[in-house]
Amino acid sequence: MKLRTLLALWLLLAPVSYCLAATDVFNFDSPEQEQRYMQLAEELRCLVCQNQSLAGSNAELAGDLRREVYEMVQAGKSNEEIVSFLVARYGDFVLYRPPVRTNTALLWFGPFIAVIIAALLLFRFIRRRKTTADPEFTDADRAKVAEALTQVEQQQRDKAQ
């Protein structure tokens, strides 16, 4: 039984390790450059298997683009230069973090707008419930309650005797 669960788990995880298997042998001049390369490869998106980063993808194009990124890092290009090189060819699509523009405004600010609207609705709902749950007592009501209470007390006293 236990073995079977283990086997099932292993089978479930097998494709994961396969997807992460993209490996290149690149030599960097400095650890700082390697760090930059890794970061860029994680942030750029592969166009073939669209929900993978360049780092995670096994597609041939991803390999070619990693090579381009590596060469540009080695040549001392800045991150901005490397990213704009790819955006000029493949469009904003390669960015996992799209730039703020008029056509991406909804994407960037939509969630905040939704939260604000939800907060306003919640606020209104709470306020309305408070007013209905807490009706004001008039003096007439108090007199009625007092009367009812004295009546109950009277009855109890009668019973006790």
């Binding site: 166009l47 073939v48 194009l61 070619d64 683009l65 381009e68 060819r89 493949y90 469009g91």
Partner: peptide
């Protein structure tokens, strides 16, 4: 041969 011009043209498939 090495697909570099393809990259310049934004070829992905």
């Amino acid at each position: 041969a090495d697909g570099r011009v393809g990259i310049d043209w934004g070829v992905y498939g």
